[in-house]
């Protein structure tokens, strides 16, 4: 369960604050992702500072009733390497094989 794991923003990703939340750009696979809520942007930004995802959600002020939904959304971000488990050894900035057409 992702909620009990330690995660962080991928080192290849930059976050750009936007009125709706943030825009996340992965310099390796060139994927652009929209974090559609300010809370989501806050969570992603502070992941690395907390022992696990659940603590980060609490710190960002996400009510517990929404933790499962946020966990799903974070799993989606993990699939495109926007966030990764801490201690992950995947080399930085390596394009992944499923990235064709990422930047439309």
């Amino acid at each position: 369960m992702i909620l009990d794991e330690a995660w962080s923003l991928s080192p290849s990703v930059a976050l750009r604050p936007e009125p709706f939340g943030a825009l996340a750009y992965h310099f390796g696979n060139r994927r652009l992702t929209f974090l559609k809520r300010p809370e989501m942007a806050a969570v992603v930004r502070c992941l690395a500072e907390h022992p696990d995802v659940r603590t980060a959600l609490v710190a960002a002020g996400v009510p517990e009733s929404q933790h499962a939904a946020y966990a799903d959304a974070l799993a989606g971000l993990a699939r495109t390497d926007m966030i990764r488990p801490r201690g992950s050894t995947r080399p930085e900035g390596m394009p992944r094989p499923d990235d064709a057409g990422a930047a439309r």
């Binding site: 936007e18 009125p19 559609k36």
Partner: peptide, 15 residues
């Protein structure tokens, strides 16, 4: 802040 992404885009972005 809760509008759809299209609605948000129509209002413009920081860059």
């Amino acid at each position: 802040r809760t509008g759809s992404l299209v609605e948000q885009f129509e209002l413009g972005l920081a860059a």
